[in-house]
Design a protein around this nucleic acid. Sequence first.
DNA 1: TTCTTTAATCGTAATATTGCGATGAAGCAA
DNA 2: TTGCTTCATCGCAATATTACGATTAAAGAA
Lengths: 111, 111
Amino acid sequence: MGITKADLFTEEQNHISSIAKVLGHPARIAIVEHLLSVNQCINSDLVNELGLAQATISQHLKELKSANIIQGTIEGTSMCYCINPKEWGLIQGLFNNLFNQYQHTTTGDCC
Amino acid sequence: MGITKADLFTEEQNHISSIAKVLGHPARIAIVEHLLSVNQCINSDLVNELGLAQATISQHLKELKSANIIQGTIEGTSMCYCINPKEWGLIQGLFNNLFNQYQHTTTGDCC
DNA sequence: TTCTTTAATCGTAATATTGCGATGAAGCAA
DNA sequence: TTGCTTCATCGCAATATTACGATTAAAGAA
């Protein structure tokens, strides 16, 4: 069917999975990593950096933006993108929360 | 095309994105969270817990297992699943690494 | 043996994703 | 104005994902 039964899950489960889904593509990881290292950049920078077509980069940026992971402002003819600081902290919290739920079992209570 | 150009990216970028992709579905997040809280469970537990069909749960478990996020051992007629402790730590490291690359800009060098 | 439980796999339909060429639309320079 | 740059969007083809009924296989109980 290709459609996810979102109503079966909690809001938080849907949120963290939707963030993970957007990060689930190497190009989008590469975009995020590039933004983390240079602070801000424009579409054409990423075209040169990643070797994907302009339309493809634009599409990935759109997905990152609609997930609130990045933000962009118009700067003349170009669009300046950067990490969304607020959401980035929130995402970090969501994932840390998940990771820290793990208690290494001392009783061997595992497969 | 629906095919990812994995050769354009680093091994680490492909790795973290492939993990994120597997976590990019609320059912798989729910499965992982359930395993984190009860330590181990079988397919039918998850069918009751999540309200998805047995075949669907089995498919999600397969993806989690092939990404090494969980592991399973045969236990009679059933299959016992749990978090893969080693990989879980590794994944945590990968994501923390990504998150901690962010330096909150004091110079307003952002969009 | 037969019956039951359990779960993997197959097959299929509906939908989503990926990538890119082509086409706009908007700003700026000459 | 014309021309150039920059990027979003459209439209399409190839492929991937999601969900599940049906089937299969294996283990244990009667």
